[in-house]
Nucleic acid binder design. Structure first.
Lengths: 340, 340
DNA sequence: ATGAAAGCGCTAACAC
DNA sequence: GTGTTAGCGCTTTCAT
């Protein structure tokens, strides 16, 4: 079965005719230029209304040499990205903020097998700016991109060369410190941690926060196992930690997904949380909300972070002054896993 | 701080000059028309390569009257949509499939306060087609849209007038029947269900499947409570079910998120799952994977559904024959919540 | 304040 | 097979 669809798109010219003015005037009204008499303007507005006119983006873009399109670049490997609630929230924030602007959101899955395709597309004048997100990764493989195209990253860059890129992040070190202190305040005296990948800023910084806090308190900081931020590896790391045979009464996990995996292992092993072991996660996503017990965590304002990324980029595009770095606050949320 | 970015976009004309041919020929090569000699073609290709030429989308679109853009319409209320793993997977499927085509994905959050804005945008010739998704909703408020713009919906339409729209769905009735049979096969003889909203196809059909199976088996089907597909309401519905004071040994919940909420209530009440009560959910998302106990569920191929939606729309746009209705298979996944 | 005119970069007949 | 010629619908000087 095939289908026929009627185009029926009124043009600026038709609006001009109906309003009895020139195309230029209509264009001025549409772009709300101040140099139009109220009469002319209202005549145009009325014509637009009755015709149901909508400016053609392509034509406008061609003439003005602006696309009004913002690309949301999602690294392919991170395409399961959507399986990550934190990431999904960031995307949501971006979309919600952009919906209030004149910009359109173009989701681009960067093919890693053919990175040039993506780069060409982005640099080919198809978009006005780019937002690069990849949970926890701090993946700035598109760092060079930012020299050509206004770009805002989610998460701080890992390498030094990219220090000058625009980005929005949370203070992972401070968040980890807060989580660790919380454990200490609870009376825990031997702590373990399940860290994230050390080649990712989020993984690195959270471990750093944990470690420095313990060292500052004169406690041991060698009970560390690493996972890749997924529940499965969180569970495995938990087992490895247990297998060490060293007792501990407090655990900081670098993200909620791994924490939930860890909790399931603890349940299987009959280790009571929080009574025998207090657990704190990071992110504040719904993984932790529905776990048993509910997970204490260091929440990040994920949706707000997405919105902020969009805001920074739009400001950049409109030539408004913007901070290169935006650090959003984290918040410790205490739930059952640390409430004795 | 402000920034300067260099455009530097080579045009088709420059390519033509360098290759020593006309613009038409370059255009033909770019659109791989067969009517070009190999020599000419390779000369053009070489020029394109050295110049790093990328066709300008706006110009191409304006001239060809095609945008190569597909809108992904997300109803605003469903913007927390991303909080729903099922939905997020569908989006992922869409994005992944489209990345392999010449089409670009334009995410549109439909503002419900100003629905016309969205409709105008979509009908204003800014996109070639639309994909409408909204988890469980079957929300075809954009049904009229499909008369003007090639549109594919996720989930079957609720109202009769829209019966002729294109959509991709799973057989919710059959899935519910399978889940209920599974409970019956386990030996359960008095079943309850937490249904979804009855104004949503997914909610309606799943209850229907459960009910007809019980009636067919000569069993009572009055133990029904309704929730809105969120974990919170799943928990509340569970409490109401328990408050009725009528004993039951099998429970079918219309989606995994509500099921997880129900499980937490059961845990609080000390009701053993699956020993005292077997529980089956629907969707197959990670909510159920990490619950305690892991949830048996009727899984939907969410990512594949998204990909299929994209595929159907693209076929429609390219004039290929397509089925108006695509029903994807569900699969019963047996986990701890029904394994005694 | 408003109109006329000249493109923006490309595709699509139409001739050759 | 290839070049020529018109536009696609809009913005933007530049006059007026």
């Amino acid at each position: 079965m095939t289908h026929e669809f009627a185009p029926a798109a009124p043009t600026l010219e038709q609006v001009a005719a109906l309003a009895g003015v020139s195309r230029s005037t209509v264009s001025r009204v549409v772009n709300n230029s101040p140099h139009v008499t109220n009469e002319a303007a209202s005549a145009v507005l009325e014509a637009i209304e009755t015709l149901g006119y909508v400016p053609n983006r392509a034509a406008r873009s061609l003439a003005s040499r602006k696309t009004q399109v913002i690309a949301l670049v999602v690294p392919e490997s991170t395409a399961r990205v959507f399986a990550d609630p934190f990431f999904a929230s960031v995307v949501q924030g971006v979309a919600l903020h952009l919906a209030q602007t004149e910009y359109t959101l173009n989701m681009v899955i960067a093919s890693e097998t053919n990175p040039d395709k993506t780069r060409r597309y982005l640099m080919g004048g198809n978009v006005d700016g780019a937002l690069v997100v990849s949970h926890h990764r701090g993946d700035h493989s598109y760092a060079r991109l930012s020299q050509t195209l206004p770009t805002v990253f989610g998460g701080r860059p890992m390498s030094a060369e990219e220090r000058d890129s625009y980005f929005v992040d949370t203070d992972n070190v401070a968040g980890a410190v807060e989580a660790t202190r919380h454990l200490l305040d609870l009376g825990c005296r031997s702590l373990a941690t399940i860290a994230g990948p050390q080649d990712m800023p989020a993984g690195f910084d959270r471990l750093l926060g944990w470690r420095t806090t313990l060292i500052g308190a004169g406690l041991d900081s060698s009970l560390v196992e690493e996972g890749d931020f997924t529940p499965g590896q969180g569970a495995e790391a938990m087992r490895r930690l247990l297998d060490r045979g060293v007792p501990f009464d407090g655990l900081f996990v670098a993200n909620d997904q791994m924490a939930v995996g860890a909790l399931s292992v603890l349940r299987d092993c009959g280790i009571a949380v929080p009574d025998s072991l207090a657990v704190v996660g990071f992110d504040g996503d719904y993984f932790g909300q529905s776990s048993d017990p509910p997970l204490s965590t260091v929440a990040q304002p994920s949706t707000a972070m997405g919105a902020k990324m969009a805001e920074v980029l739009v400001d950049l595009l409109e030539g408004r002054p913007v901070e290169r770095v935006t650090i959003m606050p984290t918040e410790l949320i205490v739930r059952g896993s640390t409430r004795r």
